[in-house]
Write a protein that binds this DNA or RNA. Structure first.
Lengths: 223, 223
DNA sequence: TGTACTTTCGGTACGTGTACGAAAAGACCA
DNA sequence: TGGTCTTTTCGTACACGTACCGAAAGTACA
């Protein structure tokens, strides 16, 4: 009669004790004192387990006051999502899972806030959904690329000779890039998410405005 | 005396015959008639093998003429990268790998073209590198999320009831989204990459312009 | 109480990536 | 040729996720 709650509790215990990399179906089953395959009766697969953990985690993120311009609310909320994901090592394992967004639990307000912000700014609801979608893509990409680059234990050969994103790049074919010397190699250290996000949001909102100029979205009921 | 070229050839053979999902270190070794662990002398790990395959593939992408505005060159090149990655099933397995960009082989011109386009538009070289970086994040996110959503064999329970990105979303907490009815569920079918990319690029270029207004980048030599 | 059906449990087995270390083969020089 | 050192080969072993399927336990109805 092992319940979902007990499973998640045991998983958290395991993660706290041995680190989340050591979390495995087998170890979790052992921790619970049940057969390995029994776990599969409460959880579809490992991805599902991690998604459940994520829901639990997301439920604890408090909803802050977000006054200000719609645009600023969007940016602030996206940054919140980003920071939460970045602080959350096992997010990268499931970030692209189907329905990840739907597993945000209590934190669906993040999605709603972004969509509502876009509508308030003058987007149609359809455009607003796309605004969220693009922000999501960008955020996921940023998290995944950076997370992957970060978890490398400093390859013996190249002791972090610069931006891992570009490591091994054949610079002899890139005259325009090389023109700035080796400075570009060190740009990775900066946290570039805020700028990129701002640019994306600005671009999206401008795009929506020019697609339907001067028009305030009317939330018409569909079907 | 198994060479890298032979390994890659055998890998391609295996992929053509059984599909790339079936490609494994063990099967590849068997195909080559060598011991499994021998492969590890020519290839660091599986990720490295896939990156080698990617270099080979990328080398075959022809470099097109890209006239027009710098902005359009950037967008066109990014779209080319995106489409290549999307057409390339095993890209998702290594897309976030360190130095992926450096494994583009002959296709480094893609990186150079984007960086050069940004500089030609008035960005500083540092800004141009960031332009590429943000485009890369967005593209990777788009590819990974969509790739993951696509490879699901239509869950028995929910026969594709809409956008997999949002599946399971608690819409009762999203009044503004629900206001458009269920239409938002079907928006996923559209290819939204071009719009998002355009918005991102526009935003990035506008941001760079406002950071250093009216200034044309001077490619000063660094260090 | 007996019987049929459903839910829960878990042992075994397959295929995976790859760490480790021993063995074989090749290279080089005395 | 013999010895030493380096490169290449690969057998064994481990932990993993999980498909498959039989066993056990719980439930419903006769």
């Amino acid at each position: 009669m092992t319940s979902r709650a007990e499973i998640l509790e045991a998983a958290r215990r395991l993660i706290d004790r041995d680190g989340w990399e050591k979390l495995s179906i087998r170890r979790l089953a052992a921790e619970l004192g049940i057969g390995t395959m029994t776990l599969y009766h409460h959880v579809r697969d490992k991805e599902d387990l991690l998604l459940l953990l994520i829901t639990e985690y997301a439920d604890q993120v408090p909803q802050p006051d977000l006054p200000g311009e719609p645009r600023d609310r969007i940016v602030a909320t996206a940054t919140l999502i980003h920071d939460a994901l970045a602080a959350w090592p096992w997010a990268a394992e499931v970030l692209t899972a189907d329905g990840f967004v739907g597993r945000l639990g209590e934190s669906v307000w993040m999605v709603e806030t972004i969509v509502a912000g876009a509508i308030d700014h003058g987007c149609t609801p359809e455009q607003a959904v796309h605004v969220f979608r693009h922000i999501w893509y960008y955020t996921v990409g940023e998290i995944l690329v950076r997370a992957h680059s970060a978890q490398r234990p400093a390859d013996a050969g190249r002791p972090t000779d610069g931006d891992p994103l570009f490591s091994g790049l054949d610079t002899s074919r890139m005259p325009r890039l090389v023109a700035i010397g080796d400075r570009w190699r060190t740009l990775a250290a900066q946290d570039t998410y805020p700028q990129g996000l701002r640019a994306l949001v600005d671009g999206l909102l401008a795009q929506a405005a020019s697609a339907a100029p001067g028009e305030t979205a009317s939330a018409e009921r569909g079907e």
